[in-house]
């Protein structure tokens, strides 16, 4: 699948900046969202080709957002990669069980992010 647009979700601006920089640096068009709710709305509207999603966010967390995305016909096939400093394996298992394609643990290197993008490209 050709990837042109990538949605990046994180509630913390600096984290968002970091990953946004990496993704945009690869020439992809970046959409950002700062909450799970916003992510769901933007994903529905703008149909990104890949989503990088933080797990720990207030109100609607990454799990809830991805459940919502998976449950919606328009977004259910968009690959989601979780990005979180939750270095706990239980989260990875949950991510897998929810059908999340992949997982990057913070802190990450740009190469890791790029690798994930290429994986879905």
């Amino acid at each position: 699948m050709a990837i042109s647009t990538i949605l990046v979700v994180d509630d913390v601006a600096s984290h968002l900046t970091e990953i946004q920089g990496i993704v945009a640096g690869q020439g992809y068009q970046v959409i950002t969202a700062q909450s799970g709710q916003e992510a769901v709305e933007k994903a529905k509207k703008q149909q990104p080709d890949l989503i990088f999603m933080d797990i720990v966010m207030p109100e609607m967390d990454g799990f809830a957002a991805s459940r919502e995305l998976r449950g919606t016909a328009a977004t259910k096939d968009i690959p989601i990669v979780f990005v979180s400093s939750k270095d706990q394996e239980a989260d990875k298992v949950w991510a897998r069980l929810q059908g999340i394609e992949d997982y990057v643990t913070k802190p990450y290197t740009p190469e890791q992010i790029i690798e994930k993008i290429n994986k879905f490209a």
């Binding site: 913390v12 600096s14 400093s85 913070k106």
Partner: peptide, 12 residues
């Protein structure tokens, strides 16, 4: 949650 976010920022 805030501690977590701070940790992320700190690591970053």
């Amino acid at each position: 949650r805030i501690a977590h976010t701070l940790k992320g920022s700190g690591n970053l």
